[in-house]
Design a binder for these strands. Structure first.
Lengths: 228, 228
DNA sequence: AAAATAAAATGACAAAAATCACATACCTTC
DNA sequence: GAAGGTATGTGATTTTTGTCATTTTATTTT
């Protein structure tokens, strides 16, 4: 198991640069869980006790309002780290997480990782990189939400998803949307109907092809024209 | 100068916990600049070479679109760190910065700080805390933008500003807005007129008092009712 | 302090997006 | 593969927000 763990850790952007013995140290404090679709890993408000990383599968990170509306921050996939904001903070998880595709997750108790970081500047440095990347992405999203209209944000979101999960084919970039239109809308911060209309438009103009949950980006340039 | 520097560093949330000799190390690689209102410290796209912290004054962090619209991420004040995303990243600054109130800024070259972090897990840890806080705040903002309407976001923003800069008086919390309505709108992600209308509404209902740039929050609870 | 200038508030209207209503497509599961 | 249920697409309508025009209020200059 240990050796395998290291292989997983190596796939995590930001951990790639660590030396083998550092990876070894991390793997020693990690435990693993196989979680099936529909499982909630933690709810917003639960006390934040661990940091997670995904070996396989997909997990949605979201927040809900009192009146039941949902915002999906991100759909994380293989190699991604999440719940990192609770490190050194002793705060409740600021968002909830649900497995949307059977997943193997690594779990590291905050206490253990904090101890490791305190003793090991190399590891601390890689954690900083993880944070830095996340912060950059989050600020990017703030800007998009503040300045872009719904079509721009829809285009932006499917471009992002295609970058993360898309497969290059002769037709273009093929993307299996493993979320509903409603959930896609909840990622974009708009209404389900608005996403439908945007996607119809993109299809009509030939930017994408769409068959249920299978999307193909046929003309990326045309899609990019929608961005601000 | 050195002793004084340490006093400044101690005011930075996240650096407070550092030992004196760690602060000493940071102060040794810091330089200082007095910048007057209107000065641009760096533009979005410039190569990111340094991290900054504010001893005094105010700096606005913003992005602009090709068609000239602006989004203000934050107005940072005394004790705040900014441009931290460029650490270990060798990326251009993702936003521009302009001094909006005469400021004394500390500058640490990325190379120097990176070296220090690599050798010193304690300092790395404090940097992680800075990132963690920023990430949390950024994600909070994403949620507000995605789920809140313009009035909710306006209330949220003035509550945030009052928390950072407000002074408690017998009348309520007094806040000197050192930005224009347009800039306030650019922070909220809406139009200048919409902010005017929201503030008028808040005034009419007795939540706030407003005389030019001087605002007093008279009824915080009532204002909070606008949040989601 | 008055005049000139700039910023902000307000009303009227236009545009964008949300909501509602319903038709259509698509999964299940029997 | 038919029946039922759920998800999606689309038109009509309402609501929200943005834009433009104008008045009012601040701020600066003289």
């Amino acid at each position: 198991m240990q050796g395998k763990t290291i292989e997983i850790l190596k796939k995590i952007p930001g951990f790639q640069d660590l030396k083998s013995d550092d990876l070894e140290k991390i793997s020693k404090i990690s435990t693993y869980k196989n979680l099936s679709k529909g499982t909630t890993i933690f709810f917003e408000g639960d006390l934040g006790e661990a940091v997670y990383f995904l070996k396989s599968g997909k997990v949605k990170i979201y927040k809900t309002t009192l009146d039941g509306r949902e915002h999906i921050f991100n759909i994380v996939g293989s190699g991604d780290v999440f719940a990192e904001v609770t490190l050194f903070n002793n705060i409740p998880y600021p968002a909830s997480t649900e497995v949307i595709e059977d997943a193997e997750v690594g779990v590291i108790k905050n206490r253990d990782l904090e101890k490791l970081i305190k003793e090991n500047a190399e590891i601390a440095l890689e954690i900083i990189k993880v944070f830095s990347k996340k912060l950059f992405e989050s600020q990017q999203k703030v800007k998009e939400l503040a300045l872009g209209d719904t079509y721009a944000r829809t285009a932006q979101t499917i471009l992002k998803l295609s970058k993360e999960n898309g497969i290059k084919t002769s037709e273009g970039i093929e993307l299996k949307l493993d979320i509903s239109r409603q959930e896609l809308a909840n990622m974009i911060g708009t209404a389900r109907e608005t996403v439908s209309r945007a996607l119809s438009q993109f299809k009509k103009e030939g930017s994408i092809d769409l068959k249920g949950k299978k999307m193909t980006i046929k003309n990326m340039e045309k899609l990019r024209d929608w961005l601000d």
